[in-house]
Design a protein around this nucleic acid. Structure first.
Lengths: 339, 339
DNA sequence: TTGTACGCGTTATCAC
DNA sequence: GTGATAACGCGTACAA
């Protein structure tokens, strides 16, 4: 493991000169430079990051705290990692998959802060978590703000009670687009919504679209996060007389849509002929379903990229604007065979 | 950011004494110890890991190189991370999702080695990669061995040409179990296999089970990794007369099984009544399919745990046994509704 | 039982 | 243009 000292000896110059060549700062004689570069190549020099961190009092590590490990989330992290790597940072990932309230999460955040990374990224909790990220977010962000630690939240899935720096996606817009598509391109008359009603992000888009269409919302009873119960809801809907039944259902999320779809199949309803279906997230399961599920895709790569950009600005010392950084990215309707 | 020096001043003792209390090594007077502990609590001391790494010439970072970001893989990484965290290591993750041959991978490995982590973990490439991990593994492991960098491979999905330290799973056993289940518990007479034939891991188990049953293997033509082609294969099978058709199909992997299942549905075949189906991996999509897919689950959490254990032993300096560390973990049949 | 002092590899200030 | 050299915070050999 070559050091600056070894390079200096090899090139027959001082440490300081080697350092100047490597940092290309100040003037160095052409011949001297060539000598140093030859030494670097010969010894295969790699800087010691621990020493650099110690000296500069700056970490080269960005810590990601992941509350989920599902495909869309990890795609976000992968994109974030790529952009941060290009900026010279190493990305560490800590998983905290056990669902819990804000207190446990805050403890983990404090532990991470104690390791003095250059910044911290919070990546959202999964679908089935009774404590969604936006809900426990104030408790998580408090220690970060207190320590003045640069941070960013990737897609908190809702509006946190307190302003924070986050990359958001416009769920409402995607759902609105889906509803209008069902009505205008597919001629559906009775478009219902299936999902929890305490999360407004998608519901708002649904209701806005129905207002545009001049129709009344149809909210199907949501039985909770159990897949079996969602499937049963699909069966119940299938048992309804055709006249009393919606001819399209927009669903809160892909896993819920697929459980519901299974119930429709159980009941012998033809999809999309009798009932059309739209999910949300574009998980791998959506493309693999039968029929392949039309869904609203989130821009995972862009979320990661935007998160990296915000974090790098905060690390560079830029102050958050009033109300926090808040980039809102569009979602995209992916039309498959359930519509 | 409190330092040892600050603690020493606060407690009115020397740095060395503070250090002894923190490391609980050697004897320290009871009163002195209490003073130091009070100072630690008051200043909220957290050791500077960069300084520690510099001094001890030991890294506290384990680098994970991930060639995929799918759910089962990330579950392995999450488990690995948890166990390494408990051992005091920080886990950094580098994603290298662009499918490529061994040369690009080897370059990334060399870059990681240059950062001098305590160890490196290789996590496998995805289903659809034309260069599966076990295939490019020799090129990846060479620079690791050359640098004497502790490493471990999580589930290389095949037998690499060269011995290396890896956690493997017994795919053959899971498939064998599935075939015997179909024959004995479900009375299936004509059990076929659908998947690539250049990967022997699952095929071997299939053939072994048929030998036990005294039957001839039925290998369905595999059209390649395109989902549309796999679906078409399902349709073709559905079009066959019932007598010429297998009554059960064991498939190489869940995504392939689900595409094939879609083709069966397209062709009006009832699953499992007419044709039973078994996948491999237990991806989230399997449970969400209709009908929910019976599949062979890999023990993700155990893979991560075993990988952490092997890596920690290598970091501690234990030499690899002849032929490399090689823990083989069992797979488990998850019976759902396609059988 | 406690304290002093050195060095890990890097960066950056100062003098030549 | 270049070379000494002093820190950064921690761990530990050696003194006291």
């Amino acid at each position: 493991m070559a050091t600056l000292k070894a390079l200096a000896r090899e090139a027959g110059v001082s440490i300081r000169t080697v350092n100047r060549v490597l940092k290309s700062q100040g003037y160095v004689g052409g011949e001297t430079r060539r000598l140093v570069e030859a030494a670097v190549a010969k010894l295969g020099y790699q800087p010691n990051l621990a020493a650099r961190s110690l000296k500069t009092a700056k970490s080269h590590i960005v810590a990601v705290l992941a509350f989920a490990s599902d495909e869309p989330r990890m795609a976000q992290v992968a994109a974030l990692e790529r952009h941060l790597r290009e900026a010279g940072y190493l990305v560490s990932v800590t998983f905290h998959l056990e669902s819990g309230d804000g207190k446990q999460g805050a403890r983990v955040v404090r532990e991470l802060v104690g390791q003095h990374p250059a910044g911290i990224v919070l990546v959202g909790s999964g679908q089935h978590d009774p404590h969604p990220l936006w809900h426990i977010l104030p408790a998580l962000v408090a220690p970060l703000s207190a320590a003045r630690m640069p941070y960013v939240v990737l897609d908190p899935r809702g509006e946190p009670a307190q302003a924070c720096d986050a990359v958001k996606i416009d769920r409402g817009q995607g759902v609105r687009e889906a509803v209008l598509f069902l009505a205008r391109e597919r001629g559906r008359k009775r478009i219902a919504f299936f999902g929890p009603t305490d999360d407004r992000t998608r519901l708002d888009g649904y209701e806005a679209a129905l207002r545009v269409l001049g129709r009344e919302p149809i909210l199907l009873d949501f039985p909770g996060l159990e897949a079996a119960a969602q499937r049963e809801a699909g069966r119940k809907l299938a048992a309804l007389p055709v006249k009393a039944r919606p001819d399209a259902v927009v669903v809160h999320a892909d896993p819920i849509a697929l459980s519901f779809l299974a119930g429709l199949h159980d009941g012998g309803v033809r999809v999309p002929q009798e009932v059309a279906l739209v999910g949300f997230d574009d998980r791998p399961a959506a493309a693999l379903a039968w029929p392949p599920l039309t869904t609203v895709a989130q821009p995972s790569a862009e979320i990661g990229k935007a998160g990296a950009a915000i974090l790098l600005r905060k690390i560079a010392g830029e102050r958050s604007p009033r109300g926090g950084w808040s980039q809102v990215l569009p979602t995209r309707l992916v039309v498959r065979e359930t519509t």
